[in-house]
Design a binder for these strands. Structure first.
Lengths: 326, 326
DNA sequence: CTGAAAGCGCTAACAG
DNA sequence: CTGTTAGCGCTTTCAG
């Protein structure tokens, strides 16, 4: 089996505690003794068992991250930023993808909690988070990112200005002469989709027409069908506003080479290389991840103030598709 | 503090061990007793402390994954697949990005090992992995993915057919009449880059001209400069072969709207929407991740056969850019 | 069917 | 400067 501190201790002819001191760089060990211990460690190939340490100290130095899907560029960008902050703080990251399934989200969170992660960053899939109550009461800080928790939970949140971004997109298209602007977005059960719809609707005001709205999961078939339906209207849309990165891409594919004005929510790689370049309302996933992680570590550092609600601005990037005339 | 098994035991008026039996679904507990225990668990909000369990049982039910960068679509696709397999096996995934730095790779691996992960999947950044020796001797299975370990380490590997893919790309361009085919790739210190160069060179044979080869990190400036240099030659290239996804994108950007035949290694989203569509040699990161993870779990299941070396095929996807005439 | 005791490998508290 | 002791919360072993 693997050598333990006890083995190192007898190999070096010292007490267990002395080895512990050397391993943890605690002061008060004679240099010569320390050297003997280090030699024994080297010789036996000893490495501290963190599990035992965790059990004794009560902190795992581990953060849990639940996102929707690591393979989605938005979330992988967020993950990487979280990871960087976590490492800076000498911790490790346990992460999992919920796949937009509330049950999976809950399982992941509960498994992370059973492992006693020191803190949790969650992009929720569901809208009932009462199951987190005991964990919060036990003192585990939790930060929700991208989407808020279900009702009745008072935790820190880091969200983007979804409604404001949607307003900006619509305003931009209207400034370029459009009056018939369609919105293609995800199921409004998803917070961000609902918020973007709200912004779209608010900005359009009188011009709002529900026939120009389609909200469901962005399959190629769904998007194709929705576009066909809208373009067959008496007054078809002259511009499109797509509700997220995946929607934008699916829509561009469905449009084939038809040139229709388009603004998408979320930036994506190569948006600039398409013809025309795709005008987008860009979020910064890495920024969101970093802010959420830093907030979490502030809580871990002892900040027990009121829950904070950060709203990250978004910005319009003009590239051509949003400036096409009606 | 949090309730422990002991607390549950006294609340239910049974012994510690009985609670343990109920929590673990072990047989041999009277239904009525079990019910009392479950009620106490519910009432106290008890959840088992996995750290203590791990310490006692010696298995963490955790797999470590070291990749280059989660934010890179290739690795995030691989990650997601690994994660799925890991979850299927009731385990959790600890992951980290090396950022192509050997030191960071080693730190991550060692930290994972100190946490006693049950197994490790590594996309190495460095080429010396002797530091893994003690871990391997302790019986921790390790699978290398995408790139092999440094000399002297006999472990399982899952690699793509890099050289074959490069040969395929070159053959395709030659079949379309090209004789001056440039190669833009990463630093050949990176295994995949070196292998692709090898395939490119082999296939070109007599036509190989080192002036048409540029290998370094794909910054916009570097690629721009390399292209300028090559296009200024007496016999400039009529086609380009780019060594990975990031290189392809950087090169497309540097080319602006110049139409040059191009085949890229790695597929990427929107390759089909560009004009012309980008012909690529595609790998399947999710497949690689799944194969690596399944191999790892076979080892964890007790398979102690010789180390395996899986080579995953790649496939050419024809979209237009690779079929442009000289 | 139930329980008491030992101990996983480490750190905290306190002596020497 | 060094060592001893107790115990983190659980599972394992063995005894009722």
């Amino acid at each position: 089996m693997r050598p333990t501190m006890k083995d190192v201790a007898s190999a070096a002819g010292v007490a267990l505690k002395t080895v512990s001191r050397v391993v943890n760089g605690e002061p008060g060990v004679h240099p010569a003794t320390a050297e003997r211990v280090r030699a024994a460690i080297e010789r036996l190939g000893y490495s501290r068992n963190e599990s035992a340490r965790v059990l004794r100290r009560g902190r795992t130095a581990t953060i849990g991250l639940v996102i929707e899907d690591v393979a989605d560029p938005f979330y992988s960008g967020l993950s990487r930023a979280v990871e960087d902050v976590v490492i800076e703080h000498g911790c490790l990251l346990l992460s999992g993808s919920s796949g937009e399934e509330p049950g999976r989200e809950r399982e992941l969170v509960e498994t992370f909690c059973a492992r006693r992660v020191d803190g949790l960053i969650v992009v929720p899939a569901g809208d009932d988070h009462t199951y987190l109550r005991p964990e919060l009461e036990a003192g585990t800080p939790v930060v929700f990112a991208d989407r808020p928790p279900g009702a009745g939970l008072d935790v820190d949140t880091v969200l983007a200005d979804n409604a404001g971004g949607a307003r900006q997109a619509v305003r931009h298209l209207m400034a370029h002469g459009h009056r018939r602007i369609a919105f293609l977005g995800d199921d409004p059960a998803i917070f961000t989709a609902a918020e973007r719809l709200r912004g779209y609707r608010d900005e359009l005001g009188e011009l709002y027409d529900e026939r120009l709205v389609a909200m469901r999961a962005p399959s190629a078939e769904a998007v194709h069908a929705d576009l066909e339906r809208m373009f067959a209207l008496d007054e078809p849309p002259t511009a499109l506003f797509t509700g997220n990165g995946r929607y934008t891409v699916t829509t561009l594919r469905a449009l084939e080479r038809r040139r229709v004005a388009l603004v998408g929510f979320d930036d994506f790689e190569l948006a600039d290389l398409l013809d025309p370049g795709v005008t987008v309302v860009a979020q910064e996933p890495a920024w969101m991840g970093r802010v959420a992680a830093e907030l979490l570590f502030r809580r871990l550092g002892g900040d027990t103030g009121h829950s904070e609600h950060v709203e990250l601005p978004v910005r319009l990037i003009v590239r051509g598709s949003g400036e096409l005339p009606p």
